[in-house]
Simulated scan of single mutants.
Amino acid sequence: MKIRVASGIAGSILLFFVVWSGQIILGLFIFLLSILALGEFYSAVSNIGCKPIKFVGYLSSIYMLLLCSGDTLKSLGINIRFLFNYRSILLTIFLALLVLFCYIIFLHNKYNITDISVTVFAILYIVFLFSFVILIRNMVNGFYYVWLIFIGAFATDTFAYFSGYLFGKHKLMPEISPKKTVEGSIGGIVGCAVIMGLYGMYLNYNNLANGIQLYHFIILGILCGIISQIGDWSASAIKRYVKIKDYGDIMPGHGGVLDRFDSILFTAPVVYFYLSNLLF
């Protein structure tokens, strides 16, 4: 427990520094996390005999980073508007699929449809979902909004853990995650709504909420409290299937990148689409 708490505090400090440092540093950080998470996922599925096309997944991380960081790069005098053209996006998707199918055509003795399927799944699951962190940071007042993602994930995880530890009696889904309880799940949702509401009060008090009323933050907290746990259970279900305990050991007491950021992958899109509907 002490190691878990210590590494959690160190990770939180690093996260604050990264977000505070600006869009470029955050973009590079998310890119690095995507690469590490892809490596963890591809290593995990190799346990059941899959052979993902790794370099396609890694290339997708670069493309997504550029796509989501266009405004930042433009401010530096680097214009990549051609990447935002929907034809360019469609062309990129087509070329990626073409390359993947060439593997099962010309290297059919080594690769099959399952291999390219897990390759594409990892891109959608990791790279695509991580990109929403950058998109939120690029919003007006994005520095403050991006914390909603981490509050949604970490508050849920923390309150669910202590609620389950103190009051947990009814198992939620023992086949996937034996320690999860109904009481812990409810505590995670309530705790996330409370912390999100308090953060909303802070933003409104300092005129940083762009006119978003307090009840929206509470609703967002409830949504993140639910979706965050789905992200956690999803990662657990995959681990059960491939028969591993953790995806990695990059953070002592927390496991790998996917073990620590599995909830964030799901809360980021929720925060982005909720805020987008309110602000634009």
Rank of each mutant, 00 (worst) to 15 (best):
A122G: 05
A122D: 06
A122Q: 02
A122W: 01
I123R: 00
I123M: 02
L124M: 06
Y125T: 00
Y125A: 05
I126N: 08
F128Q: 03
L129R: 01
L129P: 02
S131A: 09
S131K: 00
S131V: 00
V133F: 10
I134H: 08
I134N: 13
L135V: 10
L135E: 14
I136N: 08
R137H: 09
N138F: 08
N138M: 12
N138P: 10
V140W: 07
V140N: 14
N141Y: 13
G142Q: 09
V146P: 12
W147N: 11
W147K: 08
L148K: 07
I149A: 07
I149G: 07
F150G: 11
F150D: 12
I151C: 04
I151A: 04
I151P: 09
I151G: 07
G152R: 02
A153I: 00
A153N: 02
F154W: 06
A155N: 07
T156C: 12
D157E: 08
T158Q: 09
T158S: 14
T158M: 11
T158F: 07
T158N: 08
A160T: 09
A160F: 05
Y161N: 10
F162Q: 14
F162H: 11
S163C: 15
S163M: 14
S163I: 08
S163Y: 12
S163L: 09
G164P: 15
Y165L: 15
Y165W: 15
Y165M: 15
Y165T: 14
Y165A: 15
G168T: 04
G168A: 12
K169M: 11
K169G: 07
K169Y: 07
K169I: 04
K169S: 09
K169T: 03
H170M: 05
H170D: 10
K171R: 08
K171Y: 01
M173E: 07
P174A: 13
E175L: 02
E175M: 01
E175Q: 01
E175Y: 00
I176T: 00
